[in-house]
Simulated scan of single mutants.
Amino acid sequence: MNTNAIVIWLTGLSGAGKTTIAQELVRQLSRQGVKACNLDGDQLRKGLNANLSYSEADRTENVRRTAEVAKLMADNGIVPIVSLISPTQAMRSLARSIVSDHRFVLVYVNAPLALCEQRDVKQLYKKARLGLVTQFTGIDAAYEAPHDYDIELLTAYQDVLTCTASIQQYITHAYSTIDQ
């Protein structure tokens, strides 16, 4: 599979399945000899983006920094699979412009809010509903569902292997002419 210089960007609500899909996709690509890694929003917020809040400006900066890192990785032959809520169209457009349109694959990990709340192992939705966490996407901060995605994954109905197969099929078809 040709994945040279591609950035795979997964967007969706917390609990939609972005990290699970990204981790499995990294495993599968690695088995195929493709250098890949997951740039996970939660992990980035513990290091590179630890100084950022959840204000709109800081969320935009979180996306900008992540896109710059993803671009550098892709430029060096590593396929970054970004799992980041990236809640607005403007933020995702910023990421796409940094990486470049022809190298950016936007994957909408779509799950209903109620299902995301059921899957909430960190209890963040519960805390947000109690007012203990503010500016939480899907509760008191908006999530703009993308309309310009390359792939939509319906994780209420599709398991992780079906989701990763959809991504791999898209990449194989869309990027079959890129030189290795």
Rank of each mutant, 00 (worst) to 15 (best):
R31G: 13
G33M: 10
K35G: 09
A36N: 11
A36F: 12
A36V: 08
C37H: 12
C37S: 13
N38R: 08
N38A: 15
N38E: 15
L39F: 08
L39I: 05
G41F: 02
D42F: 11
D42V: 13
Q43A: 12
L44N: 00
L44F: 13
L48A: 02
N49V: 10
A50K: 15
N51A: 14
S53I: 03
S55I: 04
S55L: 07
A57C: 12
D58G: 07
N62E: 05
N62C: 10
N62R: 04
R65L: 07
T66I: 03
A67I: 06
E68V: 01
A70Y: 02
K71F: 03
L72D: 07
L72W: 02
A74Q: 01
N76H: 15
I78M: 15
P80G: 05
P80W: 00
S83L: 00
I85L: 11
I85V: 13
S86V: 01
S86I: 00
A90E: 09
A90Y: 00
S93M: 08
L94S: 04
A95R: 01
S97Q: 10
S97G: 11
V99C: 02
V99Y: 02
V99W: 00
V99D: 01
H102F: 07
H102N: 14
R103T: 05
R103A: 04
F104I: 01
F104N: 03
V105M: 05
L106Y: 06
V107N: 04
Y108G: 05
Y108R: 07
V109S: 04
V109W: 02
P112L: 06
Q118G: 06
R119G: 00
Q123Y: 12
Y125Q: 14
Y125C: 14
Y125H: 13
K126R: 13
K127Q: 15
R129F: 12
L130C: 15
L130I: 12
L132Q: 15
L132W: 09
V133C: 09
T134F: 03
T134M: 13
F136Q: 13
I139S: 06
D140V: 12
D140Q: 09
D140Y: 07
A141F: 07
A142I: 06
E144P: 02
E144T: 04
E144S: 01
H147W: 10
H147D: 14
D150F: 08
D150G: 10
I151T: 07
I151Y: 06
L153V: 06
L154I: 12
A156P: 03
A156F: 05
Y157M: 14
Y157S: 15
Q158D: 09
Q158T: 11
Q158F: 01
Q158R: 07
V160Y: 06
V160E: 04
L161T: 10
T162C: 12
T162M: 10
C163N: 08
T164M: 09
I167H: 01
Y170L: 09
H173R: 13
